[in-house]
Amino acid sequence: MEKIILFLTVLCCALTSCTKEKTDYEAEIDTIVPERSGFKEVTQFQSGAYTIRIDALGGNLYKGYNKVHVKISGQGQAPVSAATLLPIRNGGTAQAHSCPHSYQLTYNAGQGYFEGYMVFTEASDPLSQWDLHIGYTADQPYRVVQQVPVQEQDNKNLGMTSFTDRDGAQYILALIAPQKPKVAENELVAGLYRFDTPTAGATAPFPDPAQFSYSEVQGYTILLDPRMPEPSMGNHSSPNNKDLLHGADNLYHGVVNYTMTGNWTLNLILHNQQGDLVRGTVVPDDFTPGVVGVKSELHIDILF
């Protein structure tokens, strides 16, 4: 009898092992979305008696939105009271230009570093690179330039797009969150910036910040219509999304629902404070299997 029961137990174990393995859902998203946890060093260099260290998420700068920590310290030197940051792209055929950035860095006393951001519009390439022009004030003002590598964005959920409105003003829209979307409701955060076209020629030696200024656009509305462009998905969309509205942190906040993993497009329509259309087109909402989804003229692609 014991033998029979033993035999049955062994048989049960053999039969209950599944033919196909279940999907490891957590790993499913990890394979395509790089994990960038924690601020790590991008570069560190000397400026006279001071050491400047720039940290970013994962230790790299990417095309798109980058939050940075800038730590300026010198043994026995006067404390740094203020710092500025100006990224300039040099080389290539284009003339020197910048990208959205926080020129005046804010000091985080608790952590002992300055905080700011840069929204790189291109990655570095052999012909043109990004220089960071850093100015800081201790016992006297100092200036220093450091070239930094900017990599192509490998997270397909932190895309950006640039466009111009009817008056020729140049805008940049960059996704900030979610870094790692889920098949769920996702808090969607984006930064919207406009190039401040200089009204006069340079008055200061290069680089004159007034020639390279961007401002955070306030009070606009970004209408959101997420869809799956893959032909087999037939222009599939999701419910309960919320348009992006300007928040107290000068960023735009909304909600995007992804109903499954894969390729998505955030179709956007930008309206200004008066509710006038700035950019973007309405996309069809009918279900069209086998047809590649039409995208708004203002859109950002997603993949997770």
């Binding site: 999907t23 499913e28 098949v183 893959e230 087999s232 499954m260 894969g262 390729n263 993949l303």
Partner: peptide, 12 residues
Amino acid sequence: PQDRSNRTMFAY
């Protein structure tokens, strides 16, 4: 996806 080199789409 129709182009099998593209990423598959998953949901429960």
